[in-house]
Design a protein around this nucleic acid. Structure first.
Lengths: 150, 150
DNA sequence: TGTTGACCCTCCAATGATGGGAAGGTGCAG
DNA sequence: CTGCACCTTCCCATCATTGGAGGGTCAACA
């Protein structure tokens, strides 16, 4: 199986297949005499595992841990569960942040008449509120970036 | 006002103040003879606007549009509202994606006994399910990355 | 056999928002 | 005058991902 077929079989782009290999997430693929990468069914299964974990919002480092557990026949399921639940908590935290943003914006938009007049509470709200979100005691954590499957 | 004070006054890091200027999000600050950037209260107000929009998850390009509207005394509030509601829809889309991930992961974790035995439905779920999320007819959009204020 | 087109290779660069650090200038207080 | 806090620019790293250039391989077809 060449890399293009592997890409179709797993839903991971050719670019990312090479990238995952480069960063050591997966073991380097075998090579044909031509230099082409060759993928076995076992490789494909592992890559599918990777893609699914990625679809669930796991970061590459976390996927590496999951892969380790996946391949370790003697792992404890508690370890896997802990990792999964940690991730759930992280996702829930993001969701809370999203909810806060949505709530604030909807609140602002609700008070905007939305016609041709220039007066707009959204803009003045953005200009003058002490916090973008009105909830008191809100703590600011360092901004982080993340990716989401669509 | 020097850049450090401006940073404290707005909650935007010194690095980002320079970055916003570099990418043209805000007009270059005036300079003292020393070359130091000098910020007026007007600048500070605009930067606070920027920070609040950022806290609400707007991307820099969208913030640029908001700034244009903010500074355009003849804007129609409908334009602002449309932009805000567009953004709300985007945030809601992200939240749906998060919900899907959380649901799938919780479902998997629920069936994991989480003890010292190696058998773990989370891993086999990741290995064998057709889709990471069981919902049928799910469409895949191109993955995008974004940042969230914490 | 030669050509064509689809595929593959590596290397480099960009994205977006942010932080880190080096090397050097400025400003103020002691 | 010294020291320290602050400022400047410039370059690099992050994370996951895409794009492209420049060139090799393979299979089919005339």
């Amino acid at each position: 199986m060449n890399i293009g077929e592997a890409s179709k079989a797993t839903g991971i782009s050719v670019k990312m297949l090479r990238y995952y290999e480069e960063i050591g997430l997966v073991r380097p693929a075998l090579r044909a005499y031509s230099g082409y990468r060759v993928y076995s069914e076992k490789n494909i299964a592992m890559l599918r595992f990777v893609r699914r974990a990625r679809d669930l919002g796991f970061q590459v480092k976390q996927i590496a841990s999951l892969l380790d557990l996946w391949q370790d026949g003697s792992r404890a399921s508690a370890d896997v569960k802990a990792l999964a639940l940690d991730h759930v908590r992280e996702l829930e935290q993001r969701r809370r942040e999203l909810d806060e943003m949505i709530g604030t914006l909807q609140h602002l938009a609700l008070h905007c008449h939305g016609d041709s007049r220039p007066d707009c509470p959204i803009l003045t709200g953005l200009s003058t509120e002490d916090e973008a979100t009105p909830k008191p005691g809100r703590k600011k954590a360092p901004r982080r970036s993340f990716a989401v499957a669509g």
